[in-house]
């Protein structure tokens, strides 16, 4: 029995270390996942929020994408899904995913920082494709009519 309890102590020790890793991992890497409306109201409440890395889910504005061909800089506008009047420009300096398309209705997820000048400096751009892969019969009917 004595050995078993020694063992439990060792297992407990490992769990403590892992618990510590999880705790610090969460507190140091956690990112708020916000809508543009939430982001903007947060920043108004607390200007230090500009410095925080955040994740934002919004809607890509049609036809808003442009790029500077000399430097690899993409610019586009993202709006809130509920209220498209709440929007901000985005800058991104890496390769966009293939599914990124500003010619049709598309939701995107951005990671990065909302700068003081009101531009979102994105380090990651993901497109939400779940809804793109499947269409409801009504949507298919629309395609069909077109």
């Amino acid at each position: 029995m004595k050995n078993n309890s020694r063992f439990l102590a060792a297992v407990g020790g490992v769990s403590l270390v892992v618990g510590y890793l999880i705790w610090t991992g969460v507190t140091e890497t956690m990112t708020y996942y916000l809508t543009p409306i939430e982001l903007i109201s947060r920043v108004e409440e607390d200007p230090t929020f500009h410095q925080m890395g955040v994740k934002v889910s919004g809607r890509l504005e049609r036809g808003s994408w442009s790029r500077d061909s000399n430097e690899l800089l993409h610019r586009f506008t993202v709006a809130d899904i509920e209220d498209e009047s709440v929007r901000f420009p985005v800058e991104y300096r890496d390769i966009l995913p293939d599914t990124f398309n500003d010619q049709e209705l598309q939701d995107v997820v951005l990671e990065g920082r909302y700068r003081e000048d009101g531009v979102f400096d994105a380090t990651v751009v993901l497109t939400k494709c779940g809804s793109r892969y499947e269409a409801t019969p009504e949507e298919l009917l629309e395609d069909f009519i077109e």
């Binding site: 890793l21 610090t24 969460v26 890497t29 990112t31």
Partner: peptide, 18 residues
């Protein structure tokens, strides 16, 4: 009521030592 995510740094940080 507020969504918070953890990204690759979290996973790497824990799974590398393990």
């Amino acid at each position: 009521g507020q969504t918070i995510t953890v990204g690759p740094p979290y996973f790497n940080r824990i799974n590398l030592p393990l």
